[in-house]
Simulated assay, not measured.
Amino acid sequence: MKKLLFIWLLLIPAGVFAQNEVHPEGYKLLWFFLILVAIPILYYFIRKLLPKSVNTKGKPVSVSRRQLKIDLLKDRKYCPNVLTLRVENKSKKDIDLEAPVLSFRKLWSKRNFKLKGINRYEIYPLFLEAGKTHELRIDLSVFFNHDRKLKRFFRAKIRLQDTKGKSYSSSSIILRRSLFS
Rank of each mutant, 00 (worst) to 15 (best):
G131C: 08
R152S: 14
N145F: 01
G26T: 06
S62T: 06
L115Y: 03
D94K: 07
S171R: 06
R120K: 13
P24V: 08
D94F: 01
V101F: 01
F154I: 09
T133F: 00
L179A: 13
P40F: 06
L49E: 04
I123Q: 04
C79P: 00
R155W: 06
E21L: 15
K69I: 05
I95T: 11
L34Y: 01
K116S: 13
I39Y: 03
K164W: 00
Y44A: 12
Y78F: 13
S181C: 06
G117T: 08
L49F: 09
I41N: 04
A99V: 05
S103K: 07
V22G: 04
E21K: 11
I123P: 01
G131F: 03
L102V: 07
R86D: 04
L10E: 05
G26H: 07
R66M: 09
L160W: 00
R120C: 02
W31T: 09
I39H: 02
S170N: 07
N119F: 02
R65C: 06
P100A: 03
N112D: 15
K110Q: 12
L49C: 07
L9H: 03
R155Y: 03
A156K: 04
S141V: 11
I41A: 15
P125T: 05
R66V: 07
L72M: 05
V54M: 11
W31L: 15
P13Q: 08
L175K: 02
N55V: 03
D71W: 00
M1E: 13
M1I: 09
K116T: 12
R152I: 05
L140W: 01
I158T: 05
K52Q: 13
S178R: 07
T163F: 02
R155L: 12
A38C: 10
Y124H: 03
V16H: 02
K28H: 09
Y124K: 02
L5R: 09
I46R: 04
R120A: 14
R176M: 08
Y44C: 00
G165P: 00
L50N: 09
A130D: 09
I46P: 00
F32D: 10
K106F: 04
L42G: 13
F17A: 15
R177V: 10
V101C: 04
L42F: 12
K59G: 01
L160K: 02
W31Y: 11
H134F: 15
V142E: 14
L10Y: 02
A14S: 15
P80R: 01
I173R: 09
L128Q: 03
L5N: 12
L36E: 12
W8F: 13
H146F: 14
L34P: 00
Y27G: 15
D75Q: 04
L175I: 11
P125S: 07
A18G: 05
T163W: 00
L102G: 04
V101T: 15
P125R: 02
W8D: 14
V82T: 14
E21S: 14
S169V: 02
K69L: 11
S171W: 00
N81A: 14
K59M: 05
L126R: 04
K48G: 01
L4S: 13
F45T: 09
K59S: 12
P60V: 10
